[in-house]
């Protein structure tokens, strides 16, 4: 490198945002927000400090989980959660398929499309727990409110993804089926179904998994499942029991994930 110092051309990596004003503005905005957010954070540090012992107790609880002392509640709660999951997923799939068909722009006329998209949007914006509060208020405590909540949530998830999948299908086979003089249902059966079926199965299995996880939550507001037991365990600081419940949930989710992986590979 001869005389590099004199002739050296400088180089710096180009910034992500070209406009210097916008870049500084965004950085300043982010800094102000962070300062405000952290500044208005009200934390009782003494309570946190005292709680660390309990955190330790919980970690120890994981090492020695207690399945025994509340075995009846745990087993019933988990079983009820599974039962709710299966029912809600089945009901959810049954409702999602027609709504998903209706929400696909390439199959449904505009009014049907808008109505179905509306249902999907409502289901997706409403948090499960809020829905559960309403269903509990209407149908009383118990697993039925939970099943309705989970079914409602399943519709928003499955119908949306199914509709998007149908809209993404290759139009050529559908056109070819229509050219044979097939009816609308035959068109669905021969032109659309083979294209979306593997993904629909995959998504349903995934939703089964989500529904189980959610079923543990909505019990906190009285909609059945393991949530209520878990809530009680934490309230009474029975960390060994809580750890046992959480480990069971994790184990079931892992099993479900492994199993659905196997099934998905089969249907691909």
């Amino acid at each position: 490198m001869t005389g590099a110092a004199a002739a050296a051309r400088r180089w710096a990596p180009p910034p992500l945002i070209a406009s210097a004003w916008l870049r500084r503005g965004l950085a300043l905005g982010a800094a102000i927000y962070l300062a405000l957010a952290l500044g208005t954070l009200r934390v009782n540090w003494r309570r946190v400090w005292e709680g660390l012992d309990r955190g330790g107790a919980f970690v120890v609880g994981f090492a020695r989980p207690d399945f025994v002392s509340r075995w009846v509640e745990i087993s019933e709660g988990i079983l009820e959660g599974l039962v709710m999951t299966v029912t809600a997923t089945a009901v959810g799939i049954l409702i999602s398929v027609p709504i998903g068909l209706g929400a696909a722009r390439n199959l449904a006329p505009l009014p049907v499309y808008l109505a179905c998209r509306g249902i999907v949007a409502a289901s997706r914006t409403l948090q499960e727990v809020i829905v559960a509060i309403f269903f509990v208020a209407m149908f009383g405590f118990g697993p039925l409110a939970g099943v309705l909540t989970l079914s409602f949530a399943t519709v928003g998830f499955l119908a949306k993804l199914l509709a998007e999948d149908i809209e993404d299908t290759d139009p050529a086979p559908a056109e070819a089926v229509r050219a044979t003089g097939a009816s609308w249902l035959q068109l669905l059966n021969y032109g659309i179904q083979p294209q979306v079926m593997p993904r629909l199965i995959g998504l349903s299995l995934y939703r089964l998994d989500i529904n189980f996880r959610e079923s543990a939550v909505i019990g906190i507001v009285g909609a059945g499942g393991i949530g209520a037991t878990l809530n009680t365990a934490f309230d009474r600081y029975e960390y060994a029991t809580a750890a046992a419940i959480l480990m069971t949930i994790i184990a079931i989710v892992m099993t479900a994930e492994y199993g659905s992986g196997l099934i998905r590979r089969r249907v691909q």
Binding site: M1, A4, A5, A7, A8, R9, R10, W11, A12, P13
Partner: peptide
Amino acid sequence: FRRFPPADVEEAF
């Protein structure tokens, strides 16, 4: 940090 020695940058140019 993309701070290469000036000689490298010059050679790259």
